[in-house]
Amino acid sequence: MRRWLLAGTVVVVALGAIGLGLLPTTEDGFRSTAVTSARDTRSAVLSTREVGAAALRGRVLQSYVNIAVQRARDQVSTAITDLVDTEVPGPSSQRLRDEVLPMLTRSAARINDVATASSTEDRDALSRAVDELSGLAGELGGVR
């Protein structure tokens, strides 16, 4: 009897969990995903900015820059995938998506710029990329 009760409970919980996963995305749910993606990207952008600024002052090894930038790129691409994979439930979510997605893709591009400029030792390009990352961080911080 106890075993059946336990098995029944497990089945109900499993079905509940599956059911929750199948529910359509709400406007709030979409906003939450967009805000999280923007927050994670902002974190990666600011971290890369610090790495870039340290590289400009000759304070980091190139091997370290490569790895740090690669990690930041992975973080941003995960954020982009999360947002793109989320169903858009309505027009206001569509507007939010159209606002946030370009920021994320620009972030990925600017992070790439840091990697390229650092590996080619192009100080001007590196300095520009660092400045642009600061601007992007400000924009991403405005996503609420």
Partner: peptide, 30 residues
Amino acid sequence: TLFLPLGVRVESLDQVALPVAVALGKLGLA
């Protein structure tokens, strides 16, 4: 000191080393 004011979240070991590199340069990083 470095990450909290910026709102940066630490998610990898390279980030743990970054404040040392900022403060002490390549030798500190090594």
